[in-house]
Amino acid sequence: MEKMTQLTSTTTVLAIDDVDTDQIVPARYLTATTRDGIADALFVDWRLDANGNEIADFPLNQPGAADRRILVAGRNFGCGSSREHAPWALHDFGIRAVISSEIADIFRNNSLKNGLVPVVVDTETHRWLLDNPGVEVTVDVEARELHLPTGKTVGFPIEPFARHCILEGVDQTGFLMQNLENIVKFEQNRSWQP
């Protein structure tokens, strides 16, 4: 995983509530055995028409969208399926943070393991960001703060260990592996065996 302490970017706004992971990556793109080329599947049914042409007014098709690193989305982003292909596709497209007033549990967990920072903010800040697409904001992972161009700063929660991994650019598997002795001991001392 790449290191990230701060991220400054203009935003792309997708002002739809309850965007599910079937929209982020439709199931028919889950048949691959690697994650190569997964960005092509990102929002494919909202991004392209039946003939494969880009739908001009879809936010990710607008000029400059490919350079924007921050997606502002409607409430409860990433609900539905547990497919990690959803954060993979967003990351491979270039997105490094998703801001919403609420982000679904499994998607949030998967994002944190892939260098995609879930940023949950209060509804007032969220509303302002939805109403002002394209503004430049800074996600400060170190300080757990979001800086708006109005000068306003709001805090956001991030699980401390996941934050540590993002700041250091390390994955979480290593930490689990260091606990192997504890795991063996746990297995030996259980009152029942699965």
Partner: peptide, 13 residues
């Protein structure tokens, strides 16, 4: 439900 990275975590540990 878990993601694929977590599938790896469970397979290894």
């Amino acid at each position: 439900g878990i993601g694929t990275t977590e599938v790896l975590h469970v397979l290894t540990t």
